[in-house]
């Protein structure tokens, strides 16, 4: 097992390095994206426009050999616009389902909170079950199915905030933030990232990803580690005046993400440090709620500072 992990590590490392060549100074965020993919979760990015969200998604899609699609959400977008439509085919004289943009390995849902709640909730089933229903028929989405949604920070006009139930379905949330001045200067000096992207080739196949998702499941979590995760949840529930009490699903998400992080670090066992690395991203949108991801990050870090690592 250890050998296999070591071998695979190089592949993921390559993905990480290649992405880092295009999006400077965001290694941690890129790694978290990979964690989301490896643990079959979805990612929520909350940010202002123009910090490289789309670039990140496209780069990853290319490197991982995934089929990608992008949905720009607007307030008049309907569920059928993302799932697909049943249309009458006059030649074959039958109704035929035309798949919408959701049928892809990697879907970028841009400005999700601009869509109306009805369309937002259409995404819900897709995210949770990996399948969609249309006209009483249920269709499976491609496997792996990975959704990256971006949302504008709250208070921007024309937004419908995502309800907590939907927020909980995202495994991780990120705040890309502006690049550092040095990184920005590097961007300005360098080539247009879109052109750079054209030169990328895929480092992995979809089958490989699927196989490695299974391997992440096998990363060992000891009792001590589980105790640590449970302590984090309990701490949030004890101080329910400060934090939103965390659900059991959150604990599950934390475990999965920590396993993926350990896997990316080339280990077959999970350490408290793995939990600490992923915890802010896992907890931010859950603790932040309507106050947004940035606020959630502060709260998550605050919470973690008070949780002791069990011995």
């Amino acid at each position: 097992m250890t050998e296999i992990v070591c071998l695979m590590k190089t592949n993921w490392e390559k993905v990480l390095e290649a992405t880092d060549q295009i999006i400077f100074d965001k290694k941690n965020e890129i790694k978290l994206c990979l964690v989301a993919i490896l643990s079959r979760g979805h990612l929520l990015i909350e940010d202002v426009p123009g910090v490289g969200k789309t670039t990140l998604v496209q780069t990853l899609a290319k490197l991982l050999g995934m089929e990608t699609s992008r949905i720009q959400f607007t307030s008049d977008l309907l569920p059928s616009d993302i799932i697909g439509n049943t249309i009458y085919d006059p030649e074959k004289k039958e109704f035929k389902f035309f798949q919408g943009p959701l049928f892809a390995n990697l879907v970028l849902a841009d400005e999700l909170n601009r869509a109306n709640p009805r369309t937002q909730s259409a995404l819900l089933q897709a995210m949770e079950e990996g399948q969609v229903s249309s006209d009483r028929k249920t269709m499976s989405l491609p496997d792996p199915f990975f959704l990256i949604a971006t949302q504008n920070p709250r208070h921007q006009t024309g937004t419908f905030p995502l309800p907590e139930s939907q927020l909980d379905r995202f495994l991780l949330s990120l705040n890309l933030n502006y690049a550092s001045p040095e990184a920005e200067m590097k961007i300005f000096k360098g080539m247009d990232p879109r052109k750079k992207m054209a030169g990328l080739f895929s480092l992995m196949s979809v089958e490989e990803i699927r196989e490695q998702q299974d391997q992440v499941d096998n990363v060992f979590t000891s009792d001590l580690l589980i105790q640590f995760i449970s302590k984090i949840l309990i701490e949030s529930r004890k101080k329910s005046d400060l934090y939103q009490a965390l659900s059991t699903r959150t604990g599950l998400a934390l475990t999965r993400a920590a396993k993926a992080w350990a896997f990316l670090d080339g280990r077959d066992h999970c350490l408290p440090e793995d939990v600490k690395s992923v915890a802010p991203a896992v907890l931010a949108h859950r603790l932040g709620g309507v106050d947004g991801v940035l606020d959630g990050y502060k709260k998550a870090n605050d919470l973690l500072r008070n949780v002791e690592v069990p011995t």
């Binding site: 350490l271 408290p272 440090e273 600490k276 973690l304 500072r305 008070n306 949780v307 002791e308 690592v309 011995t311």
Partner: peptide, 10 residues
């Protein structure tokens, strides 16, 4: 000594 909130690697 180990700080209470410290993991082994830290």
């Amino acid at each position: 000594e180990r700080l209470p909130t410290e993991g082994p690697l830290e």
